[in-house]
Design a protein around this nucleic acid. Structure first.
Lengths: 353, 353
DNA sequence: CTGAAAGCGCTTACAG
DNA sequence: CTGAAAGCGCTTACAG
């Protein structure tokens, strides 16, 4: 064994991939100071092009990636993005996560999940502790916790970046991705009115969710444009759950005359409407048309497969992540990327007679 | 304004909660060195009880929590736990996440999600890059990526802690949480045989998922114990998806004689079996009994509501997290915490005639 | 455009 | 049982 200086032994470990390169290695191998490497990492404009190229080449050669912990310690913040949610639907949550990951890909950020309970008395301090402990770069909030002003106020105080996903602009544009729930409701109303329905029922989500109101108001707009209206007695409040949809629809279907079509605020409740119809001895779509909202898997698993409104949750997630990390361009201005669409299956038909 | 030393101005910020306490503050305010505070944080036994109490009191007073980034930098690893999954079912993913969070609560670790594609040619290097970049403390893997030996081999090389959730012990006990898929299959077989069925069909998951085989073998065991058997021609391979369940069941139901009961490898495929039955003009459960597996939401949304096997995914997630961070006691030895159970709804009945 | 010094908030290795 | 020094891998603030 010939004696070796620490440096050359270090380099051997580096070459063989035994040891990950640090900013010091890149600086030494590029013949510059680590501060200059730091400038390249952070895309500072004040680096000579030749210097930058030389450093980039060394970075590429050794597959160098800066350590997020060390960077975070110096920056006094982490490279973590939190998803704060209280939406109980698993498919919504997973689609949102996938969308956020789409938008974060290659950015060096990671996604940390944080379900919460809006009913908790410690909601705001709990979220605050999460953010401060991890020094989160930013958070994305989804309905209904995204609609909470107490949480938003705390977020502004802490200086944590945030984006709220909601069906209405409840904050300034840079903090918002607005979903098109009203538009989706309008599509449902339009379609049912076009089919000739005039006695229409609506099973709403809970009043505490802004989307419940947006979907309803859109529905009424769509009906009105085609000469139909939503009678107040044909509105039943649900809770975005299967059971609540079943109960609400049972009430509507017990009325005389009963509605010939029901728009449910989401697919879960629409599945409940199907069960209520079956219990009332009604065939769908012959005796009753049903439209849901979301186009989650359940929509095509029930019988008959549900006509529903597809909400582009994954795309919305991508936009939210891109807005948060600042990589979102003019696309946000183009509503097509957030558009809802009508998916016609077998639960809708013209009214009988 | 009287002149103040930096120290007292620091303290003012601390008292008012403007500034978070650091290990230096706690050391100074406790009259010890920061190394001793570090010992308390890390539960080193070699601290005098009185010293420990004094420091604990100061920590509590200022609500001190060590900075995970600084700690991570010094430890050369982070306090992040990765969930690496390729299971396509949203409810599985969300239940698993909730379970992991249950097991991690109060531990100071955070959950980072990382979906992956087992079919990707860069699967192993992708996961490796994720682990090394973030210096993850550990990862939890769920089926089917948890069954991948290439991934497990890489994990051992990196020295990253890991726990594999799978339906069979594919690793040593400290790296495993074994789910009781075989037992669940047995419950399904037992129940259908008890009801008197003798021509039984099975719609399997994909051969690449270990659970497909466990559920089938358990099913056969359950049948055999009650004098029934699974004929090879009544086995159709699916892919754990609704469409594959529909197609597989259509084949089984076209046979003469056809099965009087079908056990599907999961609820999604069982929903497909219900659609196939409807298209074949068969009533469930009068003409055909159906049992699913999972007891996800879909099981109670379809018509008729599905008899199924409940798998305690959230509990399994909690056990996996506790095993990973070392807080799991003897509970893992008690299969009751992972037990599957039969949930009887309306899709099962004795065979006609 | 580039760099040397100091610091982010912890732990390790060593000493006593 | 306790502590002073050095270091983890970065960035900020300052200087040139």
């Amino acid at each position: 064994m010939s004696p070796r200086t620490p440096r050359s032994s270090d380099d051997a470990a580096l070459e063989s991939g035994q040891r990950r390169a640090t900013i010091n290695d890149i600086a030494r191998l590029s013949g510059v100071s680590k501060k200059t490497v730091s400038r390249v990492i952070n895309r500072s404009p004040s680096v000579r092009p030749e210097t930058r190229e030389k450093i980039d080449a060394v970075i590429a050669k050794y597959g160098y990636a800066p350590d997020p912990q060390a960077r975070g310690l110096a920056f006094r913040r982490s490279f973590l993005i939190g998803l704060i949610y209280d939406n109980p639907n698993p498919q919504y949550v997973v689609n949102m996560q996938l969308g956020l990951l789409d938008g974060m890909r290659g950015s060096g950020y990671e996604l940390v999940v944080h379900p919460c309970d809006r009913g908790s008395t410690t909601l705001v301090p709990d979220i605050r502790a999460f953010i401060e402990r991890q020094k989160l770069f930013g958070v994305v909030l989804t309905p209904s916790v995204s609609e909470d002003e107490g949480v938003a106020e705390m977020l502004r105080e802490t200086g944590c970046e945030y984006v709220r996903v909601a069906s209405l602009a409840v904050d300034t544009a840079e903090h918002m991705i607005v979903t098109m729930d009203r538009h989706g409701g309008m599509l449902a109303g339009k379609r049912l009115a076009e089919l000739g329905h005039r006695r229409l029922g609506f099973v709403s989500g809970p009043a505490t969710f802004r989307s419940s109101h947006e979907r309803r108001e859109g529905f009424e707009e769509g009906l009105k444009a085609h000469g139909a209206i939503l009678a107040p007695e044909f509105v039943a409040e649900g809770a975005y759950t299967f059971e609540s949809g079943l109960a609400a629809a049972s009430r509507l279907l017990a009325m005389t005359p009963r509605p010939t079509a029901i728009f449910a605020g989401n697919d879960e409740m629409a599945a409940g409407v199907l069960h209520a119809a079956r219990k009332a001895g009604l065939s769908v779509p012959e005796d009753l048309s049903v439209i849901g909202f979301d186009d989650f898997q359940i929509a095509s698993r029930v019988w008959p497969p549900l006509t529903t409104i597809r909400a582009p949750t994954r795309e919305v997630g991508r936009l939210a992540a891109e807005r948060l990390i600042g990589s979102l361009g003019d696309e946000a201005l183009d509503p097509r990327s957030r558009q809802t669409t009508l998916v016609e299956r077998e639960s809708t038909a013209p009214p009988k007679g």
